[in-house]
Design a protein around this nucleic acid. Structure first.
Lengths: 332, 332
DNA sequence: CCAGATGATGGTATCGTTAACTTCTGTGAC
DNA sequence: GTCACAGAAGTTAACGATACCATCATCTGG
């Protein structure tokens, strides 16, 4: 069976290709009787227009590139899910890529994906290689940086301050009387958002006159497993540790496991805080104090921003702070 | 700044467009000196070939469609992550879509995505609408059904038997002396894989002469929250319930929460089993007995199968059983 | 009843690349 | 010295759609 092209539809409907094209894209511009004939032909032949050909001709496609560190990490997956479904509604297709927290890989991906001539590019984070920036500039396409708020955004951004999160948790624990607060984070420094939270913690303990205790473990993606080890590391350095801030809920869950195994009473002997408010955070034992950020919201706002931009209504760059929320539970 | 086309590169390198094309795709076919000139021109102009134009001309693109119920659910995200990265290595780009467990939505997505003329289509599950099957047939493209093993596969499949999982958990609990085993599952029947597990449970309790106790709650996507309610429902029906099989670890975590709150001693008073072996399953309290299936493995095998198929080495359909594993932990 | 406006349809060029063929160049064998 | 031939580069025509402009029929109003 031969592939069905517009020509076949046109022949069967007894009209020109141009009329078929119009019937499909601007049905109001063709006479009702003709429209019906075309639609029947399309139906009978099971014709699906070739989008590549269409966009080559119209110089406009409906691709949007989105790069995240990982797909299988709930916050980013939430973002992609909502971004993707919002954009789908307007006929856009997301081209996703995962960078594994590597700037080099991000650069390669952008290079490769530019071949599809996307109408917009969404990247995660505020740091990008020099070459990446050059390519993004040259692409002449809207760029949105998500999950953080860059000091010098390339264009638009949708995120929140990870630094402020670190400050908030540290101040909160201090206000609750904790004085020996440790920070647990991944061994590699590739996750800039995590490093920002750490930075917030650092400046705050300094300001409050507390000791800075940072322990690193494993490498991204972080596994719950690591939490067990990192708690022991922290305890080795500060025996009377009374609080741990974890760079993510994932790590915090491991810390809770270890603390339970050690027979520690939480939160009296040790307070634990995480980051992300993963679904499981309210079902741990004790339930986990954490910072809530809505990945879905980031995706939604990004989609909204892009659609406004691409439909030509609002060309200006925007910086959108989706903010965050400290969720107090029983672990602190 | 004008967009850079192959023409510009050709002019700058002092060669024809055809030579540029060759230099980029079959460098061995051009003289070393020429090759170098072209490469320099490409570099200086920052040229990136337009893939849409290329594939229109060559009648071959590198798109592969993949549909899953949800992106932000770890098993599927794992599959997509590995599928995507394996395929990327060979230059393929995944076009992802999420069906929300709706066959109607699956049909719409396939219709829309066929416009990109994908080289292969990956769908989740064994059930598809009649129209969907017709379209897939007509598309004349390899199809892989994943996360289950259809009785009548459209083409290839990579999965395991959800029915067998249900049987395995039920038999296991029975062997451990449990006699009043309940099953907790989502209220909507859209998740066919969950329904299959239930079916496995049903036939097994019948065979063993046990009472069948099924309670439904909420609708997909399942939230941990639901677990609390569903345990109460089960207890209302069978006061001396001694085991619960949950359709997913997500639900099981909620059940564990509720059980703990009721002061039940696990597993002596109640055994709980889940499905999926999510990372958190070994960090719950007590740790969760569950069925492990590797989403990553499904993605990997699917990629492997597709690449063999698309590179023309092996045209035959394959049914690959990635199997599953019962992970015994402290909750049973 | 006809000029001009309006609406519906068709013809042709084009989008940026590659396939298939043609042409050109230089080399080596006889 | 010539001829055959391989390797390198160029020419032309698609690929499947849309943009743009031309054409033709129909309608409207004076």
């Amino acid at each position: 069976m031969k592939p069905v092209r517009m020509r076949e539809v046109a022949t069967r409907a007894g009209v020109s290709e141009m009329t078929v094209s119009r019937a499909l894209r601007t049905p109001d511009a063709v006479a009702p009787r003709t429209l019906e004939r075309v639609q029947r032909a399309v139906e009978e032949l099971g014709y699906v227009p070739d989008l590549a050909a269409g966009s080559l001709s119209s110089k406009r496609n409906r691709f949007i590139v989105a790069l995240v560190p990982l797909l299988n990490s709930s916050p980013f997956a939430d973002t992609l899910q909502s971004l993707s479904s919002e954009l789908h509604q307007e006929g856009y297709q997301l081209l996703m890529g995962t960078t594994d927290y590597s700037l080099k890989r991000e650069e390669e991906l952008i290079q490769a994906l530019l071949g599809h001539r996307p109408q917009a590019i969404v990247v995660t984070g505020r740091h990008h290689g020099a070459e990446t920036r050059r390519r993004l500039d040259r692409a002449q396409v809207p760029v949105v940086e998500i999950w953080d708020l860059p000091d010098q955004p390339i264009d638009s951004a949708v995120g929140y301050s990870n630094f402020a999160c670190g400050v908030a948790l540290t101040e909160y624990l201090h206000a609750r009387g904790r004085r020996r607060i440790g920070f647990a984070i991944s061994g590699m420094r590739d996750d800039d958002r995590g490093e920002q939270r750490l930075q917030g913690y650092r400046e705050t303990v300094q300001r409050l006159g507390l000791e800075e205790v940072v322990e690193r473990v494993g490498q991204p993606p972080i596994r719950m497993e690591y939490g067990r080890q990192v708690l022991r590391q922290l305890q080795a350095r500060v025996p009377d540790l009374d609080a741990v801030i974890c760079v993510s809920d994932t790590l915090a869950i491991g810390v809770l496991s270890e603390a339970r195994e050690q027979g520690l009473d939480l939160p009296s002997q040790l307070a634990v805080a995480g980051f992300g408010d993963f679904e499981v955070a309210q079902h741990t034992h004790p339930s986990l104090t954490t910072i809530r950020v809505s990945g879905r919201e980031i995706g939604r706002k990004t989609a909204e921003l892009l659609l406004r931009r691409l439909e030509g209504e609002d060309q200006a760059p925007h910086i959108i702070d989706v903010s965050f929320q400290l969720i107090e539970r029983n672990s602190t």
